[in-house]
């Protein structure tokens, strides 16, 4: 039974970043933009939020720091994806090309900045965000073991985002317009102003970025991720630009 709990808790950990990033991809896809840059947006979000965590660790209580870092990731993700939005909407650029450019840029920028600022490309930080047991709810038999023990707060945030995203997409006027934009390309032409509204749809991957951090428990992904300091560090760049679409592979991070 313990094994089952363990497997379930850990799969939850891996699911959430995938879900959040996939939602980000979904918003762009539905609005008619191929967001091949998800991976790059994730990397840049992760980089800035981890840097933030490293800087402020110890001065701010862990869970608050964690949430603040998530907002940082979101904010950076928005800014970074604006580049993609600008290229594909205002400049009518080939979306594959600008997405690839973002994917190339993000890891290179992260490694470069990290090494210029602190000399090495790994950013070390202490992972003290794990909640061993949610008060009260954690005591519920079975369910408590499954989803209220050994969790990160991101798990619930991720599920919340999933719910909110579904509501936005199917139950609001914004969602309807967004879907209309993506469904018929020619519909967009007479309603240029609607294109502007698509942009917010690109921010979610930034949140996915910070979620990566919650995987640190096992694989020290950031060690391997931000970034190995061997002679072939350029490799990092490339296995990150896997362009996994909405499938960034935790294993390689």
């Amino acid at each position: 039974m313990d094994t089952i709990y363990f497997v379930f808790q850990n799969s939850l950990l891996f699911t959430v970043p995938l879900v959040v990033v996939a939602l980000g991809g979904m918003f762009s896809e539905r609005s008619g933009i191929v967001n091949i840059a998800l991976e790059g947006i994730m990397v840049i979000g992760a980089f800035f939020s981890i840097f933030f965590i490293k800087t402020f660790q110890g001065t701010i209580p862990p869970q608050l720091l964690f949430i603040l870092a998530m907002f940082i990731a979101m904010f950076v993700g928005i800014l970074f994806s604006l580049l993609h939005a600008y290229a594909s909407i205002n400049m009518k650029a080939n979306q594959t090309i600008s997405g690839t450019a973002l994917n190339l840029f993000a890891p290179a920028f992260a490694v470069y900045t990290a090494r210029m600022v602190q000399g090495v490309s790994q950013i070390d930080f202490k992972n003290n965000f794990r909640i061993p047991k949610v008060p009260l709810l954690g005591d519920i038999p079975v369910i408590g073991n499954l989803i209220f023990q050994n969790v990160y707060i991101t798990t619930y945030i991720g599920i919340g985002i999933l719910v909110v995203a579904s509501i936005i997409l199917y139950k609001t006027r914004f969602g309807l317009r967004l879907r209309a934009c993506g469904g018929r390309v020619d519909l967009r032409r007479p309603h240029q102003h609607q294109l502007q509204r698509k942009r917010p749809g690109v921010w979610l991957p930034g949140v996915g970025g910070i979620d990566l951090r919650s995987m640190e428990t096992f694989a020290h992904p950031l060690r391997r991720f931000l970034l190995r300091d061997d002679e072939d560090h350029r490799l990092d760049l490339d296995h990150h630009s896997v362009l996994g679409g909405s499938q960034p592979r935790p294993r390689h991070l």
Binding site: A93, I97, T100, A101, L104, F105, A108, R115, R234, L237
Partner: peptide, 23 residues
Amino acid sequence: KFVPEVISIMVAAIIYLSAFSLF
């Protein structure tokens, strides 16, 4: 004392701008 990743940054910038080639 520079880090060679700046080359990748430049290549990325070039690619990004080349997406504007139409413009």
